[in-house]
Nucleic acid binder design. Structure first.
Lengths: 345, 345
DNA sequence: TTTGAAATTGCAATCGATTGCGTAATTTTT
DNA sequence: AAAAATTACGCAATCGATTGCAATTTCAAA
């Protein structure tokens, strides 16, 4: 085979003295073609090393069998796992994935989405970036008749399909666990409140305090502490307070929880005896710190699969208007050493 | 805009009473179109919310501006980083990425590659799976005139573009470091030898021993210990030997190094005083274990960028035959607590 | 042997954008 | 103002596969 020369259905047809129509039909398992000629076609296709040109096929059929995914960062555990889950579920159905990363930049996110619309993807799956809260570009996706599925970080005001975690409940359970373990002054490291996930986690925190009749102390709540560094910084602030907290819920991530742990270590504050720590996301490392970090597992791979299956399910749906649907996955609290105040873990 | 109805260049042309040719030319910044009409076209395109149908465009142009990536697992730090690097570099050039994971399964790898050929990708970037060493499917890529770039885990016998780490040298330096730190009996956890990367790391290990006049002791070399569990298993075997090693080079990954560390801890063997440990890959967690693990950084994001740039560079190359080219990135030894035998780290 | 129904195959348009070639319109030159 | 040289635009084919409709063939029933 010559470089750059693909064999087409016409080549096959010519060789067999028939029409491309029949070749196409044979290749598509249409029952409108004689069994004998089908076999002949298949054999020849194989001999000529024929590979269908999907571009042409999709152009004709009006779909691309491609799903676009936009995430802040591909190389972040949670997102990598979700993508892995999506890939697994979509690959089986012959769909391809186009991956873009927004890098937490709203502008690049818009660019990515437009690129995907151009690519004629059948569906766009997105977890929005942290900055910006104007969602015209997402509305645009819908207007183009492309299925839109949001996951994890979602724009709540947009009525689309969504797959989320029950952040509030998970957060509530985490804080409840801290309280029941005997911690009394619980600090909160919170994330950017324009992201609903962080807002919900804060609500869960507040609800837990209320449930246990604990007053909310504003100075124990640190804004925007969603990286390891910011987490460490917030922790330093908290632990040098006249009345420092005896537990910190790093609601943004295990990374910030790690920052807490390192500061505590540096300040010779004993974890979990003098300070309880709870993170979020069950990153691989949370299990191997010492002490290991209590955290919340989000079932990220499963989340990806759920997104994919939701798409296929809705695709089969012939209703003209897809009604918004929200699937909520309940995360699981993983109790580890960092909150074993009384030796129980 | 109606759902499912995209505006085409014909719509624009009709509205303006001109031909699609001019619209196309205007949209492609051809200089064969009057400035006035171009502006008119642009404005109308905007009004009609026109988005170019890339499928049609690519079909006509004979390329897809798409690069296919096949890795064993997306959600593995190293690969996620490489992909992030590729994405970053390709996105700027208007290229898209289609991602597939082979799951370390040779058969699925073949499927993935065929899918990508079907998709008419301009280039396939691959890191081969661990099982199987028949590379007909890769030859097939070349035969289809698609650029093939292998990275990290490469099929050496295939003459393609490659981006690799200098595994042997890195391994040599790691083992040299162990020796110079005072360790004398150095065990090796090796990976599947059908993967060249693991073979090279073994060669580096052997070369270092030779350089320092240390005899190779076969019973200190454990085959196929490339997960945390297998690493732990191998370590148990090594440490119960009549003459156990005083250092272990987990040449496969930090995961297996972690396995080593946990077994050592369980057996109350002090690291680094009684046992030195060196891993590979600089996973995020290697920094936060106690002690932290000495390891080798592979510059994974940079590797991804290098792959992408290599593609663009070769694309510009008009030679009919692309000669094989290998770019080797020198990894860096990161010395940490797990090898600080004499207190020096 | 005819007739009718069913099974095959061919014809030609279509998906949307691009581009070589040719013609008309505009500008420049003399 | 006519001739020459540009410039702008249209025509029609093309990329490769799919599909409705028509034409032909096959086969069985009458």
């Amino acid at each position: 085979m010559k470089k750059g020369k693909r064999t087409t259905i016409y080549d096959i047809a010519a060789k067999l003295g028939i029409t491309a129509s029949s070749v196409s039909r044979a290749l598509n398992n249409s029952n409108q073609v004689n069994e004998k000629t089908r076999e002949l076609i298949m054999k020849t296709a194989d001999e000529l090393n024929y590979k269908r040109n999907i571009l042409a096929s999709n152009l004709r059929k009006g779909h691309s069998k491609t799903i676009g995914v936009v995430v802040p960062r591909i190389n972040q555990n949670f997102f990598a796992n979700v993508i892995a889950g999506i890939e697994e579920a979509t690959y089986q159905k012959g769909y391809n994935l186009i991956i873009c990363q927004s890098g937490e930049l709203h502008d690049k996110e818009i660019q990515c989405v437009n690129t995907l619309i151009n690519q004629d993807v059948d569906c766009i799956v997105i977890s929005v970036s942290a900055d910006g809260n104007d969602y015209q570009h997402l509305q645009n996706v819908i207007d183009h008749g492309i299925q839109l599925i949001q996951f994890d970080r979602v724009a709540e005001e947009l009525e689309t399909l969504k797959v989320i975690n029950d952040n509030e409940q998970a957060s509530y359970e985490a804080v409840s666990h801290l309280i029941e373990s005997g911690y009394k002054r619980i600090g909160l490291l919170e994330g950017p409140q324009n992201l609903s996930i962080f807002k919900q986690r804060k609500v869960g925190y507040l609800r837990a305090l209320k449930a246990y009749n604990i007053d909310v102390i504003d100075e124990l709540i640190v804004e925007n502490a969603w990286t390891k560094e910011l987490g460490a910084e917030g922790t330093r602030k908290l632990l040098t307070l006249p009345q420092p907290p005896d537990a910190i819920f790093a609601s943004t991530s295990d990374f910030s929880a790690l920052g807490v742990l390192e500061v505590a270590n540096a300040m010779k504050i004993k974890v979990p005896a003098e300070l309880g720590i709870c993170g979020y996301a069950n990153e691989g490392f949370s299990e191997i710190t010492s002490p290991s970090i209590t955290t919340i597992d989000q079932f990220s791979i499963y989340m990806g699969q759920t997104v994919a299956n939701l798409y296929f399910q809705e695709k089969g749906n012939t209703d003209t208007v897809t009604k918004p649907k929200i699937i909520s996955i309940k995360p699981e609290l993983i109790i580890r050493g960092s909150t074993a105040k009384n030796g129980k873990s």
